[in-house]
C-alpha cells in the first residue's frame, strides 16, 4: 500500500525488562569490600573519628592477634558447639511439634495458642529462669538456644505442612496408601521447602541467643569475648567479635543453601 510507505516505521520499544532476579555472585562481596574501604579511608583522613568506628585495619590486626594467641579457637569452639547442640534440639523438637500440629486437629487446637503465647516472649528475659532450672553451666545455654529456635520452627513447619498440595494427598488416598506412607513420602517432602526457609530464620535467632546466653556466666565464647571488650570500651575487639558473628550467620545461611540445592532439585 502506498499509504503505509509514507508512515514512519519504528521498532516497538522493549518494556519487559527487570523483575527477574539473576544470580550475580560477586556483587555481595564487592558491597562489603567497598564499605570497608570507605570506612578505612574515612577513619584515616579523620573524617570519621576513631571513637565512632574503629579503623578496619586495626580490627583486622586485633583479629590476627587473637588468632596468633590461640584464643580464637578457645572462644569459637565452645560457641559453635553450643549453637549446634542447642539449635539441633530446638529445631528437631520444633519440626516434630510442627508436623503434629499440621496433621492432627486436636494437637493444633491445643498447641497453636500456646505457641502464639510463647513466640513473642523475649527469650533473653527467661535466662535467669533457665539458670535456676538447669544450672549456670552449659545446660541452661542449650536450653535457651533450643527454646528460641523451637517456636519459629514450629510456626514455619505447620505452615509448610498446611501448604502441601491437597490434591497430592488425595492421590495417595485414592491409591489406598497407608497413613504413614502418605506422611513420610508425600507430606514431609512437600513441606520441606517451607521447613528449610523457616530454619533460616530460626538459626539466625539461635546465633542471637547464643551471644545472650554467653554474656551470662561463660568464661569462653564469642558472647563472653564481646561482653568483656564492651565493658572495657575496646571497640576493636568488640568489632572482631561482631564480625565473627556475622561470618557465622553467613556460614549457616550458606549451609542451608547447600541443603536446599541438594534436597529441592525438583523445584521449578
Amino acid at each position: 500500500m502506498s499509504d503505509a510507505k509514507q508512515k514512519t516505521a519504528r521498532t516497538v520499544e522493549f518494556r519487559g525488562g527487570g523483575f527477574a532476579p539473576q544470580s550475580k555472585r560477586w556483587i555481595g562481596l564487592v558491597t562489603f569490600i567497598l564499605l570497608i574501604i570507605g570506612v578505612e579511608i574515612g577513619t584515616r583522613s579523620g573524617f570519621i573519628s576513631n571513637l565512632t568506628v574503629p579503623r578496619p585495619s586495626d580490627v583486622f590486626a586485633t583479629f590476627v592477634e587473637l588468632w596468633n594467641s590461640g584464643l580464637l579457637w578457645k572462644h569459637l569452639l565452645p560457641s559453635i558447639s553450643r549453637l549446634v547442640i542447642g539449635a539441633s534440639i530446638g529445631a528437631s523438637f520444633g519440626i516434630c511439634v510442627g508436623v503434629m500440629i499440621g496433621l492432627f486437629s486436636l494437637v493444633r487446637a491445643g498447641l497453636v495458642p500456646l505457641v502464639a503465647a510463647i513466640f513473642p516472649i523475649p527469650k533473653i528475659a527467661l535466662l535467669p529462669l533457665f539458670v535456676i532450672w538447669f544450672g549456670i553451666d552449659e545446660m541452661s545455654k542449650y536450653a535457651l538456644i533450643a527454646f528460641g529456635t523451637f517456636t519459629p520452627t514450629v510456626v514455619a513447619t505447620y505452615g509448610a505442612v498446611d501448604n502441601v498440595d491437597r490434591s497430592l494427598i488425595r492421590m495417595g488416598q485414592s491409591f489406598s496408601l497407608s497413613w504413614s506412607t502418605i506422611v513420610s513420602k508425600i507430606v514431609l517432602p512437600g513441606a520441606m521447602p517451607g521447613i528449610l526457609s523457616g530454619l533460616r530464620i530460626s538459626l539466625a535467632i539461635a546465633i542471637i541467643l547464643l551471644v545472650a546466653a554467653e554474656m551470662l556466666g561463660a568464661e569462653y565464647g564469642i558472647g563472653a569475648y564481646i561482653l568483656e571488650a564492651g565493658s572495657l570500651y575496646d571497640l576493636e575487639r568488640l568489632f572482631v567479635g561482631v564480625v565473627i558473628l556475622s561470618i557465622m550467620g553467613v556460614c549457616v545461611s550458606a549451609l542451608i543453601s547447600i541443603v536446599e540445592k541438594r534436597l529441592l532439585l525438583w523445584r521449578i
Binding site: R170, L177, K185, G190, R267
Partner: peptide
Amino acid sequence: FQDFALLPWRTVEGNISLILKD
C-alpha cells in the same frame, strides 16, 4: 486426575513405584 497429581520430587519411575509400596 485432571492435574496429574504427580509428586514433583520423584522421578517418573519413583512416582509409579511409590504407589506399589504398601
